[in-house]
Every structure is written in structure tokens, then in C-alpha cells.
Design a binder for these strands. Structure first.
Lengths: 259, 259
DNA sequence: CGAACTTTTGATATCACTCAAGGGACGTGG
DNA sequence: CCACGTCCCTTGAGTGATATCAAAAGTTCG
């Protein structure tokens, strides 16, 4: 979908040995160390993704979860709907993210998972997962770490909605996504594709889409960002981070914050 | 601290065999089945609690976690502070709750844990935890389930702050606590001790303490609750649940919602 | 019985919401 | 290629929910 600036491979440039564009591998390697075998297994799992259009539910509230969905491209989300129709988005699933390794322990989903943009998705069935966890301790460890980071991210989102102002919330989200997407090689400098609507952003931050629109304009006017055609460019990362009071410690990135 | 109406044991009444007041055991049994041996181990672990005064940090942000704290009485919380001093409370730890089984996998805490009221707390060191997880699959399974419920609760809190009005947020929290405390035998009918300040409530719900105060008055005036001396009595549970649009599915209580 | 903390209340300010309408951008079908 | 529908973005005006500021009254506890 866009260039991966972290591996520095432009068109025609030969890839270093062991290079991968697989976001799951990149993500897990930002948290832990994988063996060649681990990597091979993960490559095999994500071999045949399926293209899912925007606005599709992968799992609905009340469903019995019967597998894990791994996002390879695009953005999906966890969300809940209120009776009024109000939607709260509780997490973004970006490339390399997956849903609910062991939610199969529970009888029914208490929330839904759906795509915000068109996504490349792999469905991994329970047996495969359990085999993976049984035979690959390195992967298991990395997946557990990733789950802890997901939880920490959820906590940070609560802080975001609970005690930041509208512009700070949006700025914080943008800073977080930059690091998360950079870890999986989906950034270009300080920019990335943000293939979601302002209404999605509103339901994420607990604002209205009208107010999100005004805050985006304000962020642009202050020279912090550029945003058009669903492509975000952060013009002043320091400024944006300062505004959002962004502290990336909760992402627990293992020292791969280069670039 | 107060009577346990679920086991129906008044003063002087003989307890049924196998009766326990241990909140961890009660909590885990609301999610899964434990063996006699499991129960005995858990009783032993929580044998010598320590009394911690209100407003004490158990773990601070930045600390390397080196053990697990189990709450046996009182209310503690996870929280983060902003530079401005604003505090966001991200979870309540009520009796039977513990912090971060496997957060020891991470290098540093990204948030703090502190007491809101005086608490009875047990600190369990890493070795003990690991032994427990190794030798007691039943407990391990129950603890994993409990972790999933913690996560689901966190998501529901995000919904609460993200898209409910002030009175709804408070009502929802009260409904949730009723079920959580009932599961560990800390309720009396539709009432329970709520030993926290209105400011704590404000930092939990993303409101100011002044506004929390007004909303509490409103809930009282509508005949939904009574609250004084840090004792909450829900007068109209159906009404409160309707106001909050409370759906307890996220707590994944295994059919123990009796009373 | 005084000090610190908490709750309560009033007056005012403001941030974000609501309602409403116009203006792209994009795709589809004639 | 144009016409049209749909979805999304943008902007304005007015409203409302919640915050802020300030002070008094109650509570707890040494």
C-alpha cells in the first residue's frame, strides 16, 4: 500500500536477506526475538489473505468466537453500539494486529470487530492457533507480549477520552498510529495512510464528526499536520507530541524507534 | 467489612461446609470450577494480608513489576497522571482482584496502582505465581478468564467515558460494581460500601467532582439511589440499569447472577 | 478543638454538540 | 461523456452540558 521506509528499500533495490514485509513478523520482532523457523511459520500462516471491503463485520457481538482474524492491510476496529446507534470504537487493528487469541475461552463476544477500510485479512482457525502456541514458545511469548501492549493501548485510550481535550485526543491518536505503523513498515517518513472517515475518528475519540473536522482544521492551521485524500503527513512531530503529551512508553517498543 | 448475603450466613448461623469468605476464590468460582486442592492453595496464599492506608501507591509508573498484589478488602485502582496533575483512573481493583499476572514480562509499569480506601492486600512474589501457574491448571485457567474479563471491563469503561452522559456514567459504574461485589460476597441486597471520594469518582468517569456531586444529587432525587457515609443503596436497580443501558454480558459471569 | 479533607451550592464561562445546509469527490448507469 | 446518487467533508449559527471559580458547610481524626 505504501513504501516501507524503515527497511529503506526503494524500487529496484535488492532486499537484504531475511527481509520481510509481513506486518505480524515485523510487529512481533519489535517486541521479542523470533527464530528463522518462527518467521517461516508466520509467513506460511499469512500466505493467502482475503480482501474484505470497508464496513464489514468480521465478528459480531454475541457470536461465539471460532478463530482469530489477522489484519495484513487496512484498518479494522473493535467497537460497540449503543441502543441509540452511537458507536464507540475501542481499538484499531492495523496490519500485524489480530483479534483475541484466547477469547475462544469465552462463550460469546461482548463486542464486534469490523473493518473501517478495505482490509487484507487472514482467518486462522483454532486448531492452527493452538498448534502454534504448543509448538512455538518463541511465538507464544511474543504474542503474549503483544496482548499486554494491546491492553496498555486500551488504557491509554481511556486516558485519552477521559482527560484530554478534543485536539489533544486527535493528536495523541495520530502519534500513536505513527509508531504502531512504523513498527510494521507502513509509514513514509512522518506520514502514513489513514483510510478512515472523520466519523470513524469521532467515534474513536468520543467526539462528533463535526467537531473532529474543526479540530483537524485547527491542527492544519497550526502547521502540525497535513491531511488530504486519507493520507496523513505529520509536519511537526515534536509539536504534535507536545500538544498530545504523548509518552510512547505504553507501547513497550523494544528499542526499534529508529527513523 | 459487611454481610455477605449470597451465602446467607447471618450472625451465629453455622456456615455450610466449604464456605469461604475469600474473595479470590469466590471470584474465580464465578468464572470457572476449582478443585478442593485449588481452593486450599488459594486460601493459603491469601492468609496474611497487610493493611494499607488509603492513598498509598502499591506500584508506581516506571517501576519494574516484581510481584502481584491481591486485594482482599477495600478498593484500589490503576491510574495515570498527566503533567497537569489530572488523574485518570482506568480500573478499580475490588476484593478478589489482583494486578498483572504477567506484566512481569514487561520492563516497566506504564501506569501506577494505588489504594483509594484502606485495603487489605497480599503481595505474592513471582516464584509463587509461577509455581501456581505451573502446578494448578484449574487456577491458571480461571486466572486467564479473569484477565479476559478485566480487559472486557476496561473496554466497557471506554464506552462509558466515550459515549455516555454524566449521570449515565455514574449509574453504569454503580451497576457494574454491584455485580462485581456481589460475586465476591461484598453486597447487602442492592447495596454495598463504596469507600471512595467524589473526586475519585470524577477521575474515574472523566468528570469534575463538582459535576459528580450534582449528578449524585440528581440520581437521589429520582429515587434511584441512596448514598451517605460511603454506603451506597440502590433503590431502583431496574431504573438505574435502564438509565445506564447496563448490559452485564461483558462481565461474563457464569450464571451466578442470583439474588 | 483545630486542621485537613470532603461535600455542597451558586454564578459564570466554555467546549463541544446539534441542527442545517452547501460543496466536493467518486462511482454508476444512461 | 454527462447526470445523478451517495457518501463524506466543510462551514455557520445557536444551544446545552459540563467545567471553572469561589466559598460555605460538613466530616474526620489526631
Amino acid at each position: 500500500m505504501q513504501d516501507n521506509d524503515d527497511t529503506g528499500a526503494g524500487d529496484g533495490t535488492p532486499r537484504p536477506a531475511g527481509w520481510t514485509n509481513n506486518p505480524l513478523i515485523l510487529k512481533l520482532e519489535s517486541l521479542a526475538t523470533l527464530s528463522d523457523d518462527d518467521r517461516a511459520v508466520l509467513e506460511r500462516i499469512s500466505a493467502k489473505p482475503q480482501l474484505v471491503p470497508a464496513g464489514t463485520d468480521l465478528i459480531r457481538e454475541g457470536d461465539k468466537p471460532d478463530g482469530v482474524y489477522l489484519i495484513l492491510d487496512g484498518i479494522a476496529c473493535r467497537y460497540k453500539l449503543r441502543a441509540s446507534g452511537a458507536r464507540q470504537i475501542m481499538a484499531y487493528l492495523v496490519p500485524g494486529d489480530y483479534c483475541d487469541l484466547d477469547v475462544a475461552m469465552l462463550k460469546a463476544m461482548d463486542h464486534a470487530i469490523g473493518t473501517l477500510s478495505a482490509c487484507q485479512v487472514v482467518r486462522i482457525d483454532l486448531d492452527t492457533i493452538q498448534g502454534l502456541l504448543r509448538d512455538h514458545p518463541g511465538i507464544t511469548h511474543a504474542l503474549r507480549l503483544a496482548t499486554l501492549v494491546d491492553e496498555a493501548t486500551l488504557r491509554e485510550w481511556l486516558v485519552n477520552v477521559g482527560c484530554r481535550s478534543a485536539d489533544e485526543r486527535i493528536a495523541h491518536l495520530m502519534c500513536e498510529l505513527l509508531l504502531r505503523l512504523r513498527a510494521v513498515g507502513r509509514t513514509a517518513g512522518d506520514g502514513y495512510a489513514l483510510p478512515i472517515t472523520q466519523e470513524d475518528l469521532a467515534d474513536t475519540t468520543g467526539l462528533t464528526s463535526v467537531h473532529v473536522n474543526r479540530m483537524l482544521r485547527s491542527l492544519k492551521q497550526r502547521g502540525l499536520i497535513e491531511l488530504s485524500g486519507r493520507q496523513l503527513q505529520i509536519l511537526d512531530l515534536d509539536g504534535l507530541e507536545a500538544l498530545a503529551e504523548f509518552k510512547p512508553n505504553y507501547l513497550h517498543l523494544g528499542g526499534k524507534e529508529a527513523a
